[in-house]
Design a protein around this nucleic acid. Sequence first.
RNA 1: GGAGAGGUACCAAAGCGGCCAAAUGGGGCGGACUGUAAAUCCGCUGGUUUUACCUUCGGAGGUUCGAAUCCUCCCCUCUCCA
Length: 403
Amino acid sequence: MTASPEVERQLERIRTGSVDFVGEDELRPRLAKAIEEGRPLRVKLGMDPSAPDLHVGHTVTLEKLKIFQELGHTPIFLVGDFTARIGDPTGKNKARPALDEEQVKANAVTYVEQVARVLDVERAEIRFNGEWMDALSPTDIVKLCSHYTVARMLERDDFSKRYREGLPISVHEFLYPLVQAYDSVALQADVELGGTDQLFNLLVGREIQRDYGQAPQAVLTHPLLVGTDGKEKMSKSVGNTIGITDAPEEIYGKTMSISDKLMADWVGALSFGRWEDLLPQARSGEDPLGLKKELARRMVARFHGDDAVGSAEGHFQQVIQRGETPDEVPEVELALGGEANLGLLDVLRQTFGLASNGEARRLVSGGAVQVDEGRVDDPKLRLAAGEYLLRAGKRRFARVSLK
RNA sequence: GGAGAGGUACCAAAGCGGCCAAAUGGGGCGGACUGUAAAUCCGCUGGUUUUACCUUCGGAGGUUCGAAUCCUCCCCUCUCCA
């Protein structure tokens, strides 16, 4: 078969921004056939609804799914409601706790809503793997297990690592890659997308598909975004995420708080199909502050629209760069409960939702607390009825009225 | 089933009868510095009505004036053997 320009054009876009591309040669004729017969490829991206929010880390592969959509293929967003109940061990040193059904359902709903911000869900398949997994009999599951060996399971990095280090591995964790693989069988996926940490699971999919008499899917992995801490993979449980539903000021501020080095990585990972123009500056390292602001602006615009950019940036300049009080400060009312006044520590704890008065005390003794724009360092201070502007650290503000 | 090792604060890890609210490192939170950062430096990091008291060292009991430390039972993890 001669390579058609259209096939090569599509492959080029598909390849952009990916790390591994397994099965490209097998995909080429399938792609050609797909184009010829007007029968789109089925492209699978699965996510476990293990946390209620998607973050920018998720958007890397989502973006690739969108590219497939733009090329006329069928994006399948697979919500791993069943797999979330198993708990994916990938990249963890511990088994991830399985979630209960209710939690999973609630998360799944918000996932789909959030995916709609990136993908045209009207023209996508949204599926749940509980659909076919719950229908399997124990016999079916045992059969599925028979297609893979323990030795091969232990090839997976986090398994072998834990095994070597004497950390526990539960048997059910071996089920995860197999279930994910079976999803590809059920969906008859031509392509599956994932992060680089998913490579093993994705490849298991190829083998299992073959065993079930299907042509193996092509596999595309993409870089994992390191979280705002600059150390670990972005993940809700580490708390280093930028959520796509975060407020504009949050998205802007969190983006500004990343290190210059991390910024370059982010631009690299997030650029494909979208922000290539930022790449030269990211590589040269020129004017990092300017580039970071541009990145922050684009992040805000991407998830909240252009209109949100101005105020998010203004907020940042005012509060972080100049250390001033923001225009909008949350208002809190506290009851004195008949007393003449209320201790500062109690006021701080209640207005900022601190865990204890001890935490409030630490903030005060650390010099982080301001009342009406003047630093306070007496933890025994008591506030009488009235209005106060409270600040705790750089970013926490509240206008408190004591009654 | 047998033998051995182990479970300490958010994590890792010391402590092995009183000086232990528990060393140290990481993380986190503050502060200083800065180009927003990073790096660096400093402080804090169980709770309270804070020179004291209360709750904490897998769980439940027990010994003792006193237990993270000793004993008993139980639960969990790892290794080797079967």
